[in-house]
Nucleic acid binder design. Structure first.
Lengths: 209, 209
DNA sequence: GGACACATGTAACGGGTTACATGATTTC
DNA sequence: GAAATCATGTAACCCGTTACATGTGTCC
């Protein structure tokens, strides 16, 4: 029995309530997509493995002539999930893959306007995240969210995601602004701005250990 | 010819200067690891493909009896890199994989103390990032960095990475603090704090479009 | 003489992605 | 009756990972 984090993600959702994989795929797309993204084909494949291990059960149902399969967690599944939630399989740190940052890193090899374009594109890409956050946030504010009773922890997830999107957006905005100023600045001015970043961050007061 | 982003990452580094893969693997570990992480075996495999396409050249050298292979970019490689840097293959948005956040999401299924433990672990995991940032930042501040002349753009990368690490650390700290207060609070107080998050973020003044 | 850094890989595996396929049901 | 949604997959591929293997050079 070889479970991946994907397995636990699905198993965890099944612990909330039974789902068809169609509904669950949608649920995951709107809820965990931005920090745990998986292809739909994966979402459909996983519960079969869980059933094979006895961690989930499948029940075939009919809507007229159309078949649908409801998956639910079993007692064994709940125990396995508890084990995982209790650790001690250490959770890995945040794992970021950010192609635009690679482009910034390599941008001295290209033309300056491409750097600005990359940064603008970062901001465009983030709108999806802001919209998703708006939808989720709105539902909780209005008290109509499907898992309203999870509001304490969902607000933590929301907090992180919105903070992240704001950070990325702010960073892209100030970096693009910097790059646009370059043609009108002296090299000394450009350098001074760069060095200020290295000396202001991280806030020396923050350092622990 | 089917190049991945990994191909361009390596090709881009070869455009900076020729490298042995041993040195390049180290370079990438300290520079791009936190937003573009690849296994070393991958770093060794990639340039062979680039040589196959004529985008890089290999030259065998000797240190006594020990062989080393220096890879360098070719003219064709430089053209291909230019094409990529100029777009228009759109760069994907930031792609985050954050298992701890999934655990927070599912934490109502477990015990509250495990939530706090997860959050504390996030902070531990970040120390590596802070240390790496310190090293890089220190080198640029002292003017001794290998690519000191890239300071304008490297400061942007540094800016993002440090901001991200600070954000994640601050978030984990305030979330853990919240969870620790729960036992002493009324349900109304807990809810009020959660709802405040939804209404304060995102800053309504920020909304564009 | 031993430990560690230098230097370069190979083999096996697998989780995950993309693209495609299929048919029923509801909605307009 | 067409279009969108519901619902569930399969097939092929491949990028990337883990784990291991091998030998030289250098430092103490």
């Amino acid at each position: 029995m070889n479970l991946t984090t994907t397995s636990y993600a699905i198993l965890g959702h099944l612990a909330l309530q039974p789902w068809t994989m169609y509904d669950l795929a949608q649920q995951m797309r709107s809820n965990v997509h931005f920090f745990f993204s998986r292809a739909e084909s994966q979402v459909y494949a996983e519960p079969k493995r869980l059933v094979g291990y006895g961690l989930a059960s499948a029940s075939r149902q009919m809507t007229g002539k159309r078949a649908r399969t409801l998956y639910a967690i079993t007692d064994a599944g709940r125990r396995e999930l508890d084990r995982w939630l209790a650790g001690p399989d250490a959770a890995k740190g945040p794992d970021l893959e950010f192609e635009a940052l690679l482009r910034v890193f390599l941008s001295p090899l290209g033309r300056p306007e491409h750097l600005v374009a990359t940064l603008e594109q970062v901001r465009d890409n983030l709108s999806e995240m802001f919209e998703a956050a708006d939808r989720v946030g709105g539902a909780y504010r209005e008290g109509t969210a499907a898992f309203q009773h999870h509001v304490l922890t969902r607000s933590m997830v929301y907090d992180f995601l919105v903070s992240f999107a704001e950070l990325a957006d702010d960073w892209a905005a100030r970096s693009a602004a910097r790059a646009r100023r370059w043609p009108d600045q002296s090299e000394a001015e450009r350098l001074a701005e760069a060095m200020r970043i290295f000396s202001e961050k991280p806030d020396p007061a923050r350092r622990r250990d």
